[in-house]
Design a protein around this nucleic acid. Structure first.
Lengths: 183, 183
DNA sequence: TAAAACGTTAAATATATTTTTAATAAACTT
DNA sequence: AAGTTTATTAAAAATATATTTAACGTTTTA
């Protein structure tokens, strides 16, 4: 291989590494460990990888790769691919960031809405009991009402978050914010 | 204090605790530690708190409270409040979830766009060099082009994310997804 | 059916993060 | 200005998380 060929190859690798570094660094937002982030970023430039290729590429143990892949699968950033003939499992990075965005945030936001709304409903029932209780002092009733109203108010946000999730899932948000707007 | 008054007080506390638990549990999404999450959720039902009140309420050390508060301030979930007369610093939880949403996600997404776009631009420059290099083999040029195109494609997403941030910041998104939609 | 290949689980180790106690610095009071 | 109160920083301890090595179970293949 000639010198200039060698240099070009290295330059391509450098270019990839710059992007790999940036992707990995910003992936803490997705709640993954740095090594899972590194793995995803590495896979982003590959067609597909086996666990052994991952461990070679990142110089880490196989169980570690296994764990990272699973975590990435949970948030749909990596998918298992079927490769005829090979006994080794193969995995591919989700390269469509819109899809990753959708799966990750919708999943998280739905969880947030569900948990909090359930707690709010229960809490409001309790507070209504207190308000209705004839023996309650005016001070206590006022307190209970204050918290009831605060919770009621907060529901607006959770409803909105649900609507946001729905509009992302359905794709309707792209009518409002097109994907291909040039700039 | 009568028995029923006592029971009502407790019921109110229970109601609050249910919500506190739920909020704290879903706050991992915002990348804060469980104790910061707990603190925020506790403050959510208080007007304002001093560091000493926090440590009493959560039964933790003052430096720990100090750290948690700072972290929460960074993502604008807690604001310092001025209290005339008191030498102690007072802090209040941001109770408007729309505002927290805006500050947190816009901050994070902007960081993501900035870092990745910078890396992409640099990488693309390198790749163009390789493509232009007269001595490059067709195989290398093809490779460089492939990565260049992949990066170019991904910019669509970052532009979109930027638009999303802008529409949240400007409030335009609420024309598309109103806050007060009833259901 | 025995051996090999592969992926996962379990236990142990290493590393990083959180939390505390102790020390320091800053701000206020008298 | 000296003493007190408050918040922060630094160092140490405790805890939690990530990673590895070793063991296990399953599937394949010879």
């Amino acid at each position: 291989m000639s010198d200039s060929t060698e240099r070009s190859r290295m330059k391509i690798e450098e270019a990839k590494d710059k992007v790999i570094g940036a992707i990995a660094e910003t992936m803490d937002l997705y709640g993954v460990t740095p090594s899972a982030a590194n793995l995803y970023a590495t896979m982003y430039f590959k067609d597909q990888m086996t666990l052994d290729e991952m461990r070679t590429e990142l110089d880490m143990s196989k169980p570690s790769m296994s764990t990272s892949v699973r975590k990435l699968q949970e948030i749909a950033m990596v998918k298992k691919t079927f490769t005829r003939g090979s006994r080794k499992h193969t995995y591919a990075a989700e390269k469509n960031f819109f899809r990753s965005f959708m799966v990750f945030y919708c999943q998280m936001w739905e969880r947030e809405v569900k948990m909090n709304m359930e707690a709010i409903e229960e809490a409001q029932e309790d507070l209504i009991d207190v308000i209705k209780e004839t023996s309650s002092t005016t001070e206590i009733v006022a307190d209970a009402k204050k918290y009831y109203d605060q919770l009621e108010e907060s529901k607006t946000y959770y409803h909105w978050l649900n609507d946001l999730v729905a509009s992302i899932r359905s794709g309707k948000i792209f009518e409002f914010l097109p994907k291909d707007k040039q700039e």
